[in-house]
Write a protein that binds this DNA or RNA. Sequence first.
DNA 1: TCTCTGATGTGACCATCGGTCACTTTCTGA
DNA 2: TCAGAAAGTGACCGATGGTCACATCAGAGA
Lengths: 197, 197
Amino acid sequence: MATKQQEKSQQTMRELMGSAIELFGTKGFASTSVAEITDHAGYAKGSFYRHWNSKDELFLQIVEQKFKEYRATRHDRVQKAADLREAMGIIWDFLETIVADRNWSAIFLEFTIHAATNESLRRLLNQSDYRLSDRVFADLVRDHVTSDFLPEKIGALNTALFEGFLIHRALGTETLSLAEVREAAIDLAVKSGTRRD
Amino acid sequence: MATKQQEKSQQTMRELMGSAIELFGTKGFASTSVAEITDHAGYAKGSFYRHWNSKDELFLQIVEQKFKEYRATRHDRVQKAADLREAMGIIWDFLETIVADRNWSAIFLEFTIHAATNESLRRLLNQSDYRLSDRVFADLVRDHVTSDFLPEKIGALNTALFEGFLIHRALGTETLSLAEVREAAIDLAVKSGTRRD
DNA sequence: TCTCTGATGTGACCATCGGTCACTTTCTGA
DNA sequence: TCAGAAAGTGACCGATGGTCACATCAGAGA
C-alpha cells in the first residue's frame, strides 16, 4: 500500500524518534537539542521539521507511545480487583512500572512543568493519553468506593503523592522508598473511600 | 561604615532584585530573561553579572529571602503544639502561607525541576534555606511521634503530597482543594506517627 | 587639589537554541 | 519521459545566558 516515499518517510521518523528517545533518556528534555537529535541519527536539522512541527510535538508522541507500553503491561489486570485495597494495589503496580523506567519518570516530570506555562500544551497534557489522569484512576476505583468521597479525589490524591515522590527522587532525596509511598497512598485511599463507621 | 560605592552597589542590587522579583512573579523563571530584568530596572545587561554569577544565583537568593519571610510569619507558633495533629496543623498553616503566594509556589516548582538536572544546583536546593526540608519537618513533629515510623518519613510524605498538589494546580486541575489535601496529609501523618493499638 | 587605583556600569560580541525557508535530490504516476 | 510532489539540506533568523574590553566614577594618598 505504502509508496516507497511514504516508507522512507516513516523510516526516517523512526530513526529520528529512536535517536530522540536515546538522547532525552540520558540528558533530559531541555538539555537535548534538535540538532543533536538529527546529527545523532545522521540527518540535517531541517529534516526534523519535515516530520514534526516542534520539539514539544515529538516529545508528546514519545510520551504517548511510552504510556501505551506501560498500559500494555498492566492493563489486563485492572478489572479483576475484589475490593478497594486490591484495586489500589493494581494501580500502584502500574505506577511502579513507570518508576522502573528510571530516567523517564524524571523526564515526564520535567516536561510536565515545562508544559504548565503553555496554555495549549497544558490542555494536551491533561488528556489521559499523556498523563496519569484523575479520571482514569476514578474509573478504576469507582465500584469499590463506599463513602461519599469522590473517586476523582482519590485519584488526585494518589497522583499527587506519586508525583511528589518523583520530585523527591529527582532531587536525590532518599528519605522515602517507593514501597512506603505506595503503602501510605493505599491507606489514604482506603481510609477516604470506605464508609466511616 | 559602608562607603558610597558599596552603598551604590547594594542599591543597584536591590533595584535589580526588585525588578527580577516582579518579572519572575508574573512570567516565571525560564520565560524571564536577564536583559528584561536589567532593562526594567534601567541598567545594561552587563551590570547584572557584576552582582551575580548567573540567573540561577539571583533566583536562589530570592528563594532564600522569600522562605525567610514565610518562616517569619509562622515560625513563632510551631513549638506550642500539644500533640501530633496540632503540630501538623501548624505545619500546614505554613504550607498555606506558601500556596497563598499564588504565582510563586508554581515558580518554586519550576525552578526545583530545573535544578534537578544540575548537580551543584540540586545540592544547594536540598538545603533547608531554599526548600521545604524533610529534616525541618521531622524536628517539628519528632516529640509527638509515638510509633517507630521515622519523623523524617512523615516530613517527606507531607512535602511529597504538598508538591504533588502544586503540580496539579500548575496544570490547572481543580479536582482537589487545598483543604482536602491538608486533611489527607494530616490524617496520614497522625496514622503513621501514632503507635498502633 | 591632583592623581592613581579599583570598583561600578556599558553594550557589542559569542555560542547555542528552536524554528524557517529557498533550494537540491529523489520518487511517483501519467 | 518528465512534471510535480515529497524528502532532505544547511544557511539563516531572532532570542537567550553569559563574557569582556572599555568607559566612568568614588575615594585614599600626595
